[in-house]
């Protein structure tokens, strides 16, 4: 039975990306199409980085954002999202999360890491910073849900910013999540 997909903010609003990151003008169609075709409702999560470091932020890895202040900010956002997830879970809805792989905040299975990165923002293309793990907002959302006794929904991430992105494979992953 179709349920509710909580999706990363940028998947409905590419304007929230940092410079150079927007793949399309606004709505990321492949995800919306996959959800709509299967009758899933969409709920958009806030972008943790947009409200903290702003539209003109640099690209960043997890270590650059992983401060106490950013963790508090993410927890504040996570409380709002967890409240909404809790409403649906208590109502018996099937709930999934769709994050953004490679993101220091919204990664589900892949985040970005480089303990040495800092200073002048020179960031040649490459995959060195990509590493298994979740982003900071996903960490805080998991913790907030656990405190409420709400199980973490099954989750995956959109892969369009990974160097090995493969559109059909991404769609297969979304469908597998929805139909699990």
């Amino acid at each position: 039975m179709p349920g509710v997909a909580f999706v990363a903010h940028c998947l409905l609003n590419q304007n929230s990306k940092c410079s150079g990151g927007a793949r399309c003008p606004g709505v990321y169609s492949p995800l919306v199409g996959a959800l709509r075709e299967r009758g899933w409702q969409i709920q958009q999560m806030p972008c943790p980085e947009l409200a903290f470091t702003g539209l003109n932020r640099f690209w960043a890895v997890r270590e650059q954002l992983d401060t106490s202040a950013y963790r508090r900010h993410c927890r504040r956002l996570a409380k709002g999202v967890a409240g909404a997830i809790e409403v649906h879970v208590r109502a018996g809805d099937d709930v999934v999360l769709v994050g953004l792989e490679g993101s220091p905040s919204m990664g589900v299975h892949v985040t970005s890491s480089d303990p040495e990165r800092g200073g002048r923002p020179e960031w040649p293309d490459g995959t060195d910073e990509l590493t298994p793990g979740s982003g900071i907002f996903i960490d805080e959302l998991s913790a907030e849900l656990a405190e409420r006794g709400v199980p973490l929904p099954r989750a995956t991430g959109i892969t369009h910013q990974l160097p090995d992105h493969h559109g059909p494979g991404e769609l297969d992953s979304i469908v597998a999540l929805l139909e699990a």
């Binding site: 409905l12 609003n13 304007n15 929230s16 606004g26 709505v27 919306v32 958009q44």
Partner: peptide, 13 residues
Amino acid sequence: LAALEAAGWGAIQ
């Protein structure tokens, strides 16, 4: 959402 997508707008739900 489809109208926004067609017109090139982003969404804040």
